[in-house]
């Protein structure tokens, strides 16, 4: 599920953006090392394939149809880290070109679908890809990838104060389960056909058992955030009431100096505006400096 802009609490936005920025940066470096000769073309074209595949609808009867979401298929054919990078690229294009998911909410959507979704989906595959359970692993992986990312999205919304009545919550859960099963079946159908057609397509990605750890982490993350959301849906707001953190963080995000008026121009609206602008510039400057420093360290 692609969350649009405007729905998420600033703290959620900041948290998910930070988590997914780190995860994607790490995945990008790993992917570059994993794929021989850094095959940008391979990841880009398979990403484009997922878009194209989403145009092919699988009819389910009763006038409904469904399509492949593709995360699990990418993980099986490219490997974990390259699949994460490719899925991130897909989400960016969806947000920018197709208004599918917000730009500010990209952090959350990437964390849900490209990081946690793919890691969770990869868990059964990392464990059982070689044994007799291989086909079940793909089925379960497709299911887990959809359910984990969907559950995280719902939890983030609930935490952001978007109340969802119980009836709607239950029907969403049923819907999520159904589309998870479908994703598993679709991925399985494609992978089986691919194995008959071009087995080399499935040999590119090396499966490592150790990667199951990431899957476990992703499932724990999804479970944890759902648990927090169901226990205390207003946790962010009550936190704000109690310690005023949220309000302060909210101010910090945009206008670090706005609440502390500039002494040389007390009280006027434009002092607040200038302070806001300064805050933005400072935040950005800090970000760029950090990125530069990281890049220098990498090239050194």
């Amino acid at each position: 599920m692609h969350i649009p802009d405007g729905f998420l609490h600033p703290l959620i936005l900041a948290g998910t953006a930070t988590l997914s920025a780190v995860a994607v940066a790490v995945a990008a470096r790993k992917a570059q090392r994993e794929l021989e000769e850094s095959r940008f073309a391979l990841l880009g074209v398979t990403g484009a394939f997922v878009f194209a595949a989403q145009m092919v609808n699988f009819p389910l009867g009763f006038g409904t149809s469904s399509h492949l979401l593709g995360g699990m298929l990418l993980a099986v054919t490219l490997g974990l880290a390259p699949a994460m990078v490719t899925m991130t690229a897909i989400l960016v294009v969806q947000a920018l070109v197709f208004q599918d998911g917000g730009v500010l909410a990209l952090g959350a959507n990437v964390l849900n679908m490209a990081v946690a979704g793919i890691a969770a989906g990869y868990l059964p595959y990392a464990l059982w890809s070689r044994g007799r359970l291989r086909w079940f692993a793909i089925l379960a992986g497709g299911f887990l990838s959809v359910v984990a990312s969907g559950a995280m999205a719902m939890a983030e919304l609930v935490l952001s104060g978007v109340r969802i009545p119980a009836a709607l919550l239950w029907s969403s859960a049923v819907l999520l389960t159904a589309s998870g099963l479908l994703e598993g079946l679709l991925t399985l159908a494609v992978v089986r056909a691919l194995r008959a057609l071009q087995p080399s397509a499935l040999e590119r990605a090396q499966v490592r058992r150790s990667q199951a750890v990431l899957g476990v982490l992703a499932v724990l993350l999804a479970g944890g955030i759902v648990a927090v959301a169901s226990e205390a849906p207003d946790v962010l707001d009550s936190l704000a009431d109690r310690v005023g953190i949220a309000e302060r963080a909210r101010a910090l995000l945009t206008t670090p100096l706005a609440e502390y008026r500039l002494s040389w121009a007390p009280g006027s609206w434009w002092s607040q505006a200038t302070a806001g602008l300064l805050g933005l510039a400072l935040t950005y400057g800090a970000g760029v400096a950090l990125a530069r420093a990281l890049r220098r360290r990498r090239s050194a």
Binding site: F40, L43, G44, V45, F51, A89
Partner: peptide
């Protein structure tokens, strides 16, 4: 990250070609 940017570029470039093929 540059890696992601280049992947994005290739994705966008071949979006058209592949969706035509899918059609």
């Amino acid at each position: 990250p540059r890696f992601l940017v280049v992947v994005l570029h290739f994705l966008y470039r071949y979006l058209f070609v592949l969706s035509e093929q899918a059609q």
